[in-house]
Design a protein around this nucleic acid. Sequence first.
DNA 1: ACTGTGACGGGGC
DNA 2: CGCCCCGCCACAG
Length: 108
Amino acid sequence: MTRRPLILRDLVAPVWKIPRGKVTTYGDVARAAGFPRHARQVAWALRNAHGSIPWHRVVGAGGEIKLRGHPGMEQRLRLESEGVTFRGRRIPMRLHAFRFPVAKRRLG
DNA sequence: ACTGTGACGGGGC
DNA sequence: CGCCCCGCCACAG
């Protein structure tokens, strides 16, 4: 099985669907894009994606911000300004996790 | 071709 | 909660 080529735009496309006040994980974005097990590549793609993409709405599984230093602070501020709450270092995913619609499924 | 490096994820303790 | 370990995968040297 030849591996489908990884197109940065496709990989981060799902990020545009995350509404204000909600967050998703790198792994979920990867799966929603059709590239399971590519969580790290999603992070890499966001890093290399300049532009107005809402990158701050993507966090690590468990609701923890994975960016270190100032960039991480900025992400937290951006999220809080959108209404996302924190409990310690983490975001209660129970409250703010955005669920991507289930992957396309061929019906009969 | 090989090695080191992550904005990752999951599991074990 | 913190730590460690390991699987994963594209990229830079």
